[in-house]
Write a protein that binds this DNA or RNA. Structure first.
Length: 243
DNA sequence: AATTGCTACAACCGCCTGAAC
DNA sequence: CGTTCAGGCGGTTGTAGCAAT
């Protein structure tokens, strides 16, 4: 049985107060990041170290770019999700100033729904063949009670479990291979499932066979600009996504 | 004006990984 | 080589605020 990361009896939970934020900011400004487990005690905070870390990384850090996601950021998230699956930290790493939590929330609350409304399965980025009425839910329809809800109860998967899912490894691998990047680095590459002949070219465009391209051509959604470019021999300038 | 339903997002939880010992 | 610990990650939950009725 794993020890709890902190004594929960003596730690605050829930929303952070301005005073707590200030204490955390002051402490990190003087001492730098790290040592999260002992930080609360040193900073005079009655919080779990993990909570402090999360608060700093997701909200207080000066590196964070807050505000709405730009259209190009949204496009990039879609493409990176097609390539990487739910590896939010990797995706966020390609979006300067964005955190994994922010990207994850944005995906679940905005992008996921857009894809669903376009008839695209957000899990594998495939165009759904059978358009069930559920796929055309009005945005205001109660999604808590259908399978498409962002809050859908899933088996609480972990990273390693997720990697084993077909989402990335089987169908998904095929699906995204067209969009994969040749400039992908080793770390990222190892995260992708190996295939006998991986095509990891991650140009901005999807190949004509891409389901998303098909979706765009068929449904022409007005909102989600996927900025699809067809690869025609001479590659369009590749986004350096994997630095 | 009150109630209900829904969305967005901050925060928490449990698990995994890698380093240190 | 096994154990412990800190840090990190993704999934999930709680709730404030807004919209609809």
């Amino acid at each position: 049985m794993r020890k709890p990361c902190c004594d929960k009896k003596h730690t605050n939970k829930g929303a952070w107060t301005k005073q707590e934020d200030q204490k955390l900011i002051d402490y990190i400004r003087t001492n730098g990041e790290g040592g999260w487990r002992t930080l609360p005690e040193h900073a005079g905070l009655h919080r779990c170290g993990k909570s402090c870390r999360l608060r700093w990384i997701n909200y207080l850090s000066p590196d964070i770019k807050r505000g709405n996601f730009a259209e190009d950021e949204e496009d990039l998230i879609v493409k990176l999700h097609a390539l990487l699956g739910n590896r939010w930290s990797l995706i966020a790493g390609r979006l300067p100033g964005r955190t994994d939590n922010e990207v994850k929330n944005y995906w679940n609350s905005h992008i996921r729904r857009k894809l669903i409304n376009m008839g695209i399965d957000p899990n594998n980025h495939r165009l759904n063949q059978v358009q069930t009425p559920l796929l055309y839910n009005h945005p205001h329809q109660n999604e808590k009670h259908n399978q498409l809800s962002p809050r859908i109860k899933t088996s609480s998967g972990t990273r390693s479990k997720m990697i084993e899912e077909p989402n990335v490894c089987d169908d998904h691998q095929q699906e995204v291979s067209d969009a994969a990047s040749s400039s992908i680095n080793e770390d990222d590459e190892t995260l992708l499932c190996s295939s006998s002949e991986p095509n990891l070219d991650l140009t901005i465009g999807f190949s004509p066979s891409s389901s998303i391209l098909e979706a765009k051509q068929q449904t022409k959604p007005p909102e989600l600009n996927l900025n699809v470019e067809v690869d025609q021999g001479e590659r369009s300038p590749a986004l350096i996504l994997f630095l």
